[in-house]
Amino acid sequence: MKAEDVKVCVLRIEGTNCEDEMAYAFESVGATAEKVHLKQLTGQAPLEMRRSLEDYDILAFPGGFSAGDYIRAGAIFAARIRSAIGDDVKAFVEAEKPVLGVCNGFQILVELGLLPAKDGSIMDPVPTAALYNNDSARFECRPTLLRNDNNGKCVFTSSMKKKQVVMFPSAHGEGKLLSMDENFVQKLEDNDQVVFRYVAPEGEETKYPWNPNGSPSDIAGICNPAGNVMGLMPHPERVLTRFTHPDWTRGYETEEGDGILIFRSVMEKLLR
């Protein structure tokens, strides 16, 4: 498989607003990305615009405020997917094709039951976690530092070093990961499902504002038990070049930004 043969479906509905950057991110590592409206997958579009999910190799849920964040962030997008193409999405994940959700995309994956996903399940019928209002009760928008805490299961961080710290900006109002399970974090940890944790600059304790939402154990991103579905709150697609890093004038040897690592990782995995 050549890089340009990797077809990426960046799924949008009304209210998603990061699909351009998301598609550009995959294009910049050589893949062929297409912004696809949900209606193109459900047959509610003119014949020549209809698409089939199985023709794609990667599915990406961009950030934004899908369906106005009504009811709960991501709930309406998730319910529409479940009712119209739920089986297709399940088959996509079952085939271990990569699925990425950023910000609102992460909220959609959680509402869809694709994350965190219990052991042995692909897509839970009801959400088993929630991304809930930040502790500050405000929309938090700023650079955040993330540490790769995955031991190698997640396909989106496979070419990153263990414990590598990167800067991806955060911009969300509901990013606190909650579960009913008291041993939630431990179970994620045991299963190698924790991907990113918020950290503070060296020597500082991780707390607000470095953890922007109060997530337990500073969790910023997780993957499913198989490692092919990842969701995270901060935006890697916003830091593809150093020029969108706040400190872009110093400390960079190349023009690349930290975010490219996510997209390169998954491409390397697919092209191997």
């Binding site: 709960r72 319910a79 009801v126 959400p127 976690a129 009913m180």
Partner: peptide
């Protein structure tokens, strides 16, 4: 409620 309006976690 089960399918959309409530998230049983919260």
């Amino acid at each position: 409620c089960r399918k959309l309006l409530a998230n049983p976690v919260i």
